[in-house]
């Protein structure tokens, strides 16, 4: 299963949730599958998805799902220790680990070799770290949302991208509609 198929299975779970999505293919694929105001698409800035999601979780009460990648987590690995030492029980970090830099042509990452991001997250003090097969990701995410506890999910999938268009939304539009979705009162 590649990332696009994994995201496809997540669509019903992500609906209505605050989602911060990683730069490049992940955001473009999510945009093609489920565009909603509560998605924050990163159009640049490799590595900061987890940090943006975590800052958002600390600042307000709604559940935040950060969809990061193995390559970009490696870029900003130390943020796992910030996450592990400042608990926010409304924060879920989903690392889609396909062992490659997908957006740049599937060059291998060290996470696909000897580095275990789940073990790194645990060693950084993160609680509730689970490593799951791609096909189990939607279930793991559902459970994490229901548990209401800070969770890190490392979803192992195959490398590969599908052909989807780039995001043409203006960054200020993305930010404005996202901030409005954050402010919206919870109706559940």
């Amino acid at each position: 299963m590649i990332r696009y198929q994994l995201l496809e299975e997540l669509v019903p779970v992500l609906q209505g949730q605050l989602v911060v999505c990683n730069i490049g293919s992940p955001s473009q694929e999510l945009y093609a599958l489920l565009d909603q105001p509560s998605n924050f698409y990163m159009l640049g800035t490799m590595g900061l998805c987890s940090s943006i999601g975590f800052g958002l979780a600390l600042a307000q009460d709604k559940t935040v799902i950060a969809i990061d990648g193995d390559g970009s987590v490696l870029t900003n690995l130390a943020t796992l220790s910030t996450i592990g030492n400042n608990r926010a029980d409304n924060f879920i970090l989903l690392i889609v680990d396909n062992g490659s830099y997908g957006s740049t042509g599937d060059q291998p990452t060290y996470a696909g070799d000897r580095t275990s991001l789940a073990k790194v997250a645990e060693a950084c003090g993160c609680g509730n770290v689970v490593e799951v097969a791609a096909s189990m990701t939607a279930d793991a995410l559902r459970s994490a949302i229901a548990a209401g506890e800070q969770t890190v999910i490392v979803a192992k999938c195959e490398s590969g991208n599908v052909d989807v268009p780039v995001i043409e939304l203006d960054p200020i539009v993305i930010a404005e509609r996202f901030a409005a979705a954050v402010r919206e009162p919870v109706s559940r």
Binding site: T45, G47, F54, G55, L58, A78, T82, F178, A179
Partner: peptide, 26 residues
């Protein structure tokens, strides 16, 4: 003031961006 020390300043800017989207001035 919610103080969240960061490890590197670019990480800090990510945290600030998220906090701002969440309604806090950073």
């Amino acid at each position: 003031l919610l103080h969240v020390p960061c490890n590197k300043e670019d990480e800090g800017m990510g945290l600030c961006a998220g906090a701002y989207l969440g309604g806090m001035q950073p």
